[in-house]
Simulated scan of single mutants.
Amino acid sequence: MCLGVPMRVVGGDDVTALCERRGAVEPISLLLIGPVPLGTPLLVHLGTAVRVLDEEEARRIDDALDGLAAAMEGKPFEHLFADLIDREPTLPDFLRGDPPG
């Protein structure tokens, strides 16, 4: 399983950004996405930025990661998955088996 985490650009240059997540700062390669402005949230995997996130998506990913950690510790976690509670799951169009058109 691959896991990407949201990080925020706090410094760096056009090739390597200094990114922060919960107080830890580390260098992150920007070779896959190119230069980005300070403050930009990024999805980071193994020291490489794989895409730019908007604020809402970064928050939802953080909530999901916090929810998983809480569930593993036996703590309440449902509030961290508010976007999934009380909603029917949906399949993408290509998995529904509906005829094209």
Rank of each mutant, 00 (worst) to 15 (best):
C2P: 15
E88H: 04
T40C: 08
A70M: 04
P99Y: 03
P35G: 15
L43R: 03
G101W: 03
V15H: 14
L84E: 02
A64I: 05
V25Y: 05
P99K: 13
E57L: 09
A70Y: 08
A17P: 08
P89E: 06
D86M: 00
L91M: 06
I28R: 06
E57P: 01
D98H: 05
L91Y: 02
E20M: 12
D66F: 02
G12D: 10
R8K: 15
A58N: 04
D62R: 12
G47R: 09
P35N: 07
L3N: 14
F81A: 07
L18A: 06
D13F: 14
P76S: 05
E88Y: 01
E73A: 14
G34E: 09
K75H: 04
L91P: 00
R59N: 05
D83C: 03
D98F: 04
V5S: 15
E57T: 15
R59T: 06
R8D: 06
L80H: 00
P37H: 05
L3W: 09
E57D: 06
D14P: 13
L91Q: 05
R96V: 10
L68K: 01
L3D: 12
E20A: 10
V9Y: 11
H45C: 08
R87K: 13
D93W: 14
R8E: 13
V44W: 02
A17C: 03
T90K: 11
R51G: 07
T90G: 02
V36G: 07
L42N: 07
L32Q: 11
L30T: 08
V10F: 12
G34H: 07
L30Y: 09
V52D: 00
R51Q: 06
F77C: 04
T16V: 14
L38N: 08
P6V: 13
L43G: 05
L30V: 10
L68H: 08
A82C: 00
L84C: 02
L30M: 11
A24P: 00
L42V: 14
L30K: 09
R22P: 00
R59L: 11
T16K: 11
V9L: 10
L31Q: 12
E73L: 09
E26M: 14
A64D: 07
L84R: 08
A69D: 12
P99F: 02
R96I: 06
A58K: 10
A64N: 14
G47V: 07
A71M: 10
A69M: 05
G34Q: 08
V44Y: 01
R87S: 04
P41A: 11
G101I: 06
V44F: 00
M7H: 10
R96H: 00
M72E: 13
A71L: 14
L32T: 09
E56D: 11
M1P: 15
F94K: 00
D66Y: 02
R60C: 06
E78I: 07
L91F: 01
D83E: 08
D66T: 01
A24R: 13
A69Y: 03
P35Q: 15
L38T: 03
T90A: 14
L31V: 13
D66I: 03
I33V: 12
G12M: 11
R59V: 10
T90S: 10
C19W: 07
A17Y: 12
P89R: 07
R87A: 02
G74W: 06
L95P: 00
M7N: 02
G12K: 13
L53D: 00
G34P: 14
D63N: 12
E88G: 00
L3V: 15
H79C: 05
P41W: 06
V52M: 03
L53A: 01
A58S: 09
P35Y: 12
L38C: 01
P99M: 05
E26V: 11
